[in-house]
Design a protein around this nucleic acid. Structure first.
Lengths: 282, 282
DNA sequence: TACATTATGAAATAAAATTTCATTTTTTCT
DNA sequence: AGAAAAAATGAAATTTTATTTCATAATGTA
């Protein structure tokens, strides 16, 4: 439980003066943990009891207890937050911002995922006769990557990033087939149709998408990957990375389910690549 | 610097009474952070000033400051680290492990990147006549994604995940062309050769790879993405995600360099997709 | 043993946090 | 709009907590 997030979340439950306190804290939490209640009150231009009430409202026992929570939140590394790239950022600045935003998104995505749904997905994937991954645009590369991974498991797997091929494949699907449809927005018409077609043909449809979208409604299992996509630069960024991490999770679940003997098989696949590489000297 | 470790280290520099305090703290640090100096003194059967002196000896400003440090040390129990998936992990466990490992890798990768090299890369990319992205296996999807992004910039861009096409393309490259070669290991023979061919033909070769690899040696600019790939399951995981984040960085640098007018153009590309989507109701 | 050094705690002081309560501001209801 | 109720706020008092001071005790040293 990160108290900084909590402050952000409850910002509009707070009174005007309490909000002033919140703002001062959010602006420089690292200063606050070394300030007395009097110093903080002065900084925020409000009285000491207000600070105290603010702390209580956040379910802490008082100001010292609040500082403890704050210190702990800060200790957990820099809390990754979605920081927006600015026109005048140096290379170093925008690099840091993008990496941090990406990490923040992964954290968010992880929270939106439900272990039960993952379990069910792994279930149906391990029992599938055939697995298809569909995506368009940025999600196409996620489908591509999924094929790459599941291919190693020696199961029939295909991926399509072409609307027509997806449609045809969906129409030809049958019971026992698993169709994984990937879309961040969950609103791409043709993909929603493909999901619906596959379902009509009795395939199990797993959706990797945002909660409560038209696509989600068509799926047998929804793996919710909720990230706040930074659309400042009009390019999908964090969404596809969170989706890829989820593919890793599914692939891992798959191998764990199949047992250790199966993992020896994976090693063989990997070893077969060795001759195409330059040897390591160390 | 973890204060619990520090206490352990300095245990024999302490006086008899101070050591009593240390022992109480080490025994149940989680209780101590919620105790007053009086409570702790009583617990250790010594006086309050002794506790205070103990705190100062550990280079803290006093008891409250000491508690702050202690709280932070306790919170730091879960920084993002590469945790290995275990045979008996539940879905929830391996999901968390994979997401956390991914975040840890991103942190590592970010550290290995050099802002200067990124700047130079953005320089040559913005001035390129033609940009090619080459990758194989897991890195192929990174090249694929890069094409997806740079395509929006309305510059000639191609991607190949096929050895022969890569070779042909490299041989036909010329001055002013930029070839981006992506490989985590940096040891894939055919890719190293492609890099070398492109360089011989006066193209600028940017390598997205690990420091000090055969591939790195053939490149005009090396963007080091050092991650400790978890090879337990014999599948590339974090490496490709770190590479994708780097692609985001390059694409962002590109748009920033091109200025605000150019960004309007990106918005148009995005808007053109609208009709293919279901409308949002909210 | 006598002296110096260090360690310790009782009591005094200082600092910090909390509570109480009167005043102000905002909301709700005619 | 205006009165009544409710909520928010801060000044001052109180309480709690931490620190300093200083006298005494313990420990080491010649």
């Amino acid at each position: 439980m990160n108290i900084l997030e909590k402050i952000t979340n409850e910002l509009d439950m707070l009174s005007k003066s309490e909000r002033k306190v919140a703002e001062v804290i959010l602006a420089s939490p690292n200063t606050v943990i070394h300030s007395s209640i009097a110093a903080l009150a002065k900084q925020a231009n409000i009285s000491e009891p207000t600070v105290n009430r603010f702390c209580r409202r956040l379910d802490t026992k008082g100001y010292p207890d609040f500082k403890l929570h704050l210190a702990q939140s800060l200790a957990n590394g820099t809390p990754y937050v979605n920081r927006h790239v600015d026109e005048n950022d140096t290379a170093d600045e925008y690099t840091s911002k993008i990496f941090e935003s990406t990490m923040a998104s992964l954290e968010l995505a992880r929270k939106s995922l439900d272990a039960n749904d993952i379990n069910r997905s792994v279930d149906v994937l391990t029992q599938a006769n055939k697995i298809s991954f569909f995506g368009l645009g940025a999600s196409a590369i996620v489908a591509h990557d999924a094929q790459n991974k599941f291919f190693r498991f020696n199961v029939p797997v295909v991926y399509f990033d072409d609307i027509l091929m997806q449609r045809m494949s969906a129409i030809n699907s049958r019971q026992g087939d698993v169709v994984v449809v990937i879309s961040h927005t969950g609103r791409t018409k043709s993909l929603v149709e493909v999901a619906s077609l596959a379902k009509e043909n009795d395939a199990t449809v797993i959706g990797i998408t945002t909660t409560d979208t038209p696509l989600a409604k068509e799926c047998s299992i929804v793996l919710s990957v909720d990230v706040s996509e930074d659309t400042d630069l009009y390019m999908p960024m964090s969404s596809r990375i969170a989706q890829l991490a989820l593919i890793d999770v599914l692939a891992t679940g798959f191998t764990l389910r199949r047992g250790s003997k199966f993992r020896d098989n994976l090693k063989k696949v990997k070893d077969s690549l060795r001759s195409s590489r330059f040897e390591r000297k160390d």
